[in-house]
Every structure is written in structure tokens, then in C-alpha cells.
Nucleic acid binder design. Sequence first.
DNA 1: CTCTCTATGCTCGCGAGGCGAGTTTATTCG
DNA 2: CGAATAAACTCGCCTCGCGAGCATAGAGAG
Lengths: 388, 388
Amino acid sequence: MPTGHASANEARWRGAVAVLDRLRREPGSTRAALARDLGLASGTATEITARLRELDLVTETAAAASGRGRPTSVLGPHPAGPLVLVAEIRHEDWRVGVAGLDGRVAVLDADRHAHRPAAVLRAVAAVADGAVDRWGRRVRAVSVVVAATVRDGRLVQASTLGWGPVDLTALAPPRGLPLLVGNDATLAGVAEARSGAAAGAGTALHLTVEVGIGGTLVVDGRPVAGATGAGGEFGHLPFGDPALRCPCGARGCWDLEVDGRAVARHLGEPPPEDPRSHLRAALARPGARDAVERITRALGTGTAGLVNALDPEVVTLGGLAGPLRRHARAAFDAAFADGLMAFRRAAPPAVRDAVHGDDGALHGAAAVGLDEVISERGLAAWAADRAG
Amino acid sequence: MPTGHASANEARWRGAVAVLDRLRREPGSTRAALARDLGLASGTATEITARLRELDLVTETAAAASGRGRPTSVLGPHPAGPLVLVAEIRHEDWRVGVAGLDGRVAVLDADRHAHRPAAVLRAVAAVADGAVDRWGRRVRAVSVVVAATVRDGRLVQASTLGWGPVDLTALAPPRGLPLLVGNDATLAGVAEARSGAAAGAGTALHLTVEVGIGGTLVVDGRPVAGATGAGGEFGHLPFGDPALRCPCGARGCWDLEVDGRAVARHLGEPPPEDPRSHLRAALARPGARDAVERITRALGTGTAGLVNALDPEVVTLGGLAGPLRRHARAAFDAAFADGLMAFRRAAPPAVRDAVHGDDGALHGAAAVGLDEVISERGLAAWAADRAG
DNA sequence: CTCTCTATGCTCGCGAGGCGAGTTTATTCG
DNA sequence: CGAATAAACTCGCCTCGCGAGCATAGAGAG
């Protein structure tokens, strides 16, 4: 069922949202193309763009001449337009950046950290506060991405970071800005689905291997986040050996079959300190070839299972999943095909390497932050803000 | 990202959609309650209801007096309002019914069948054609539910029915009515999420055991159907023994661990002709107790894995899954808890028996059919139809 | 039985967005 | 330099939603 009723105060921004959304999807669009694609009457296009210009949301600059007829203009983000603060907290470092309406992220500051939550949050909050001081009300939302399981804006399990539960609401700077918190794999998946290897796909599955397996299903550009935001923990599906207990508390987790811990186990070595670099190293170790092949098969089989269950149009592989598949392509392909339901084999979904690389999560964070800004509610608030 | 632009011609039905949607969610609402809940000005409520009455979409009848003040009226579906044809094709029988705006289904005809696709389709189509002859343009959509894997409106795998690929588009009666085709487990899940054991949950997981396991994830009342509509085939996740080949073509499928085939295997018996009734019988067989417990554990473990991965607010159990859990409650609960990630154990999602019973799929089919009718596009078409 | 009270419905003028026909404008091509 | 062309602008019109003020149907009180 549709989502309910929006007041007329918000509904009046429908046209503006449509235009800004399209602008985000296809940056550098001309106004003429835009009106054509959205089916707007030319008068309507004039009105909407005028309104958006008035509100410092877009600029119009002369387009390169393209033939006969009156030249059109190119729409772009306004230099005084709304901004989204994005922050990323990873295994060993953090970054804070700022994104404009086009989704481009400019990094403001970054540093390594020593795994102490309070100190990291302080450092990140300081940069965020500085940004709010500098840009004031132009900052409309804060979007934080962490390498951890996130639930209701709280970090509940961060094996990678080695953190316990941490409340991130301290990152919401003054002035009651909306705070969005997301998992790194989830937001990297969003980035791939919107402007990466799964662009254009209605349903996309993203899988990433770092320590264990993370991922997300993205439907129409939005992650299927579950009731508490902790969806996408595909690594804790029991695809593996039921005798193995996972640090997450469950058993037989897929996680344990695919990362550096699995390689070490298959080689009869003790569990590695840092499973991620252990796996990366294993890709170059001739002696680890069989072990790498074995975990690649586990990756392929599980991926096929998820394709059976979720029916994505495209699967994107992030982190070390891409390199893994590349190093043992035949093993992956065979396991993948073998794990598919027969009727899917004729036209299985494409499995592609992610293209956003290390910036995927940050780009995804910017994207979901902008969703907030470029929405009927968000634009109504922006307009009210500068009127009052 | 929002779904794009709707023309003004469609946008003008926003208010009407909001009202009809609420009416569907809370049948028997008074007009006053409706205006309050949707935040409509009293004048707006007057206008919208007048418009809806004008179009034969709702009726207003005097409400039971409830105290002081001017009495309000109760809104209900109009007796000359739009209808959705629903058809269900099951293992051994079929049903065709018709639903009004309140989602209530009246069965028009039903019969057993002999597993011959062409004959079944002919019979169903005949009833549907009769309905269209009788109600004409009042019939706005045809929603078909089949006990089979459905892909792009085509039936691609029907182990239950014993059918090969079948194209169901023959069921779209004349006049180009929209045809919706869905899987039975998927639509039963929709019914539970909208008006059943998962009512009110934003993210609900439905699992059902018949022959194998079917199900669906339902987000905001809509099934996560995947790229081709074949999502929700959770039974073909490799939770089981990788040595076992599944009729679907994959191996290690969860399917094989939970239904009548699994019981027979555990008892050292040959595979049953009809796994569904074999399982039902096993529930009453003292000698099958261990086997039933074993498959119930497999159900619990897999359910926990899906909870880890998808993070539903509620899990609903349909078909024989409910009875299975009831017969071996301790086994289910232990396996479920053991399979959860530790941080989920404090507040795991409720696991409830489905309440729609055998009618779930049919109710779900009516619901998704009505989504089509009660939409800006659908209402615009309805209005245009009676104007022209 | 009538008066008062109250929650609700109705009327109507207003403002806003989108539409489309007709007009104007900036370019390129001949 | 003028014709052709594609795009932008103007303006009257439509419909929706809003909200203030008015009308109304019952319940309770006397």
C-alpha cells in the first residue's frame, strides 16, 4: 500500500523533487532534455526551474551550442545550495566530507585512529561541528557510515573495529540535524545500484568480503534495511559448517567459509590476527591456491543461493570479493552455476565487480543523505528555513 | 530515489488515494476519524468524499450515534464500484473470485482439476470471462496466484502442480485488463503483512511449508519480488546437505531438509509421492517423532539465518510450518535461538502462526490487485472510463 | 418540550501548481 | 540578411487543498 498522506504543503514540491531527482541521476542535463523526459509542459519547466533558482537549489549555465534553434541551458547544483555531511568510520581510519546536490563528495578531513570509540567520535564530531559553523543552515543532514552492524542508529556489533555497542547519536551536531547511520556494505551497495556497476537495475544484490561477508539488497535505489536497519547481514546465513561457532553467536555462518579465517583453517594455520590482510596476502601465495579456490567456491555457492532467494537483476562484488573471483574464476563460475535453480541458468543475473572501490560507502552515505534533502519534506523545510 | 514524475492528471488523485487506502486498512472508518487521521481540513474531507461518491467509489451511511455533536457517517465500498478478479490455482483445485474495494473476496466458482494446464486455464478463463460479461468495466484487474515459481508473469517451475513452463497471459480477458501473477507463498505473506499476523509491521518475513519452503519478505505491504518476480524462493538457499541434489537443479537446498521428503529420508523410507500429506501424516505418527523434531530444527535454524540476514520485525508461519513448530516447540525454539546472532537474542522478532489459513494467497492476490485500482493511475483511469 | 451544547459537515474565497496555446527569443543555415 | 528552428516565456485556465465562518443534527439539561 502506498505510504499515506502528505500535506499539501509538502505535495507542492512534487515537481521540484522530480526535477532534482532526475538531475542527480543524470548530471549535466539540459533543461530541454529534462522537460522532455519528465513530460513537463514548457511553461511548467520554466516555472519549476525559476523556483529552484530562486531557492539557490540550481544554477543554469549556457549549454554548448548543439545545432539550430534557441540554445538551452545546463542545470547544475547551486554553489549556495544545501549540503550533506558524510562521515565514514573504518577499521583503521575515518573521513569526513561534504556533498552537494550532485552527490559529489569533497573530503574535509581524515585521520587514522587507535580503535578507541570515544576518541574517534570526538574527532569526527569536531570536523562536523566545524562544517556546521562554516556552512550553517546549508548543512541539512549528517550521514554516517560505519564498518559495523547498525541497529536503530546504534552500533551493535563491530568485530572489524573491535568495538562494543556504541551510540552514535553524539554525532548529530547541534540544531537537530537529521542523523542517518548505515553499514558500510549496505551503503556501498547503494552506491553501486545508483551510479555504479548495478546502475539502472531495479533489484541489485551487493556482496562484499572484508572480514566476513556483508552486503545488501537494493530495490529501486533503496536498501532493504529491515526493521531495525540491520538487514543485509548475509554473512550470517548458515551456509557453512554447522559445527563451527561464529563470533556473532550463531553457527555455520557463511562468514566463516569465505574470509581470511577460512583460508587459515584450510591451511591448518591458527586464526589470523587480521583476516582481511591475511586473505589479501593469500591471493598472492602460491601455497594458498587450493584454499583460495575453496573459499571462492563457497562464495559462488552462497551467491547462487542468494540469487535463488532474492532474484536480483545484477550482483555486484565489493571489497575482496572481486579479486577472489578473479583469482579463481573457474571455481567461482562453476559453483555459482551449480548453485542456481535450473530455470535461472539460461539467463542468470550478471555478476560484476563493484566500481566505486574504496569510496563506495561514502558515496552511498551521500546518496541516502541527499534523499532526505531532495524530498518533498526536505525541500519544504529548506524553503521555510530561508523564508523565516 | 523516489519513483519519478506523475503527471498532474494523476497527481490530482492523491487525496482520493489516501482516503481509499486508509479505508482499506481500517474498514468501517467514520468520515470524521478519517479526516482527523489524515490531517485533512474538514472542507477537504467534504470535497474528497463527494468526489468519491460521485464516482461510485464509496457510499456513506449513517453511523451509530456516539454521543454529542453532529453524527458522522461511515464510509464503505460502493455497490457499483470497481472490482478485481482473483484466481487461485493450487495443487488439486482452482478458485475464481471477485473482490471489492474493501478487499473482501466472494468466490464465484471452484473446482478440482486433473493437472492439465490447458484445461485448468480454460476453466478459469471461462469464469473470468463470465465475470467480465456480467460486470463489464467494473472489473479493473485480474490477479492470479499459482502454487509455482512465477517469473515475468510466466510459470517457470511448478513441482507442486507437476507442470512445465506455462504462459498465463491467456488469462488476461479481453479489453486489456492488467494481469498480475504471483506465487502463493508470496501473496499469502502479503495478506499476513496487511491484515494478518504481521499487520502493522514494516518488514515482515513469511515462511510456509508445503512441498518445500516458500515465502516472501514484505516491506511496507509490498513483497520484495526481485527482478523477475521470482523472489522469495528461500527454500533454495543452501542451508542443507550439499550432497543432496534438489529437483530445482541446485544442491543442498533447505527445501530438502524440512518437508515430507526429509521425514521419509530420516526414517529410511522411499521418497513419498505427495510430500505434503506425508508430512501431515507424520505429525500424527509416534514413530516419526524424531524425524519431525529434526526437520523442525532445520526450520528453526534456517528461520534464524533469514532473520539475521533480513531483519524482519515479525515472522509469520504458514502452511504446515505452524503445525510443525507446535509439534516440536522446544526443538524449534532452541534451534531458532541458537541460530540468531547474539545481539538479536535480547529482542528477537516475534514468530507467529499465520492467521489467513487457506485463504491467505487469495486475499493477498486481491490486495495487490486493489493496489492497482487504488492508485493515482488506477483512479484516473476509472474516472476517465466513466466520463468517456 | 425546548434550549443549549458540541462535534461535525458545508460554503466559499484564496493561493498554488501544472497545463497548453500563443508569443517571443536566440541561434544556425542558406 | 532573412528563413527556419528549437527552445523559453506569458498568461488565462483548471483543479486541488486550505481554513474561516456558517449551518446542522443529534445529546443532555432544565
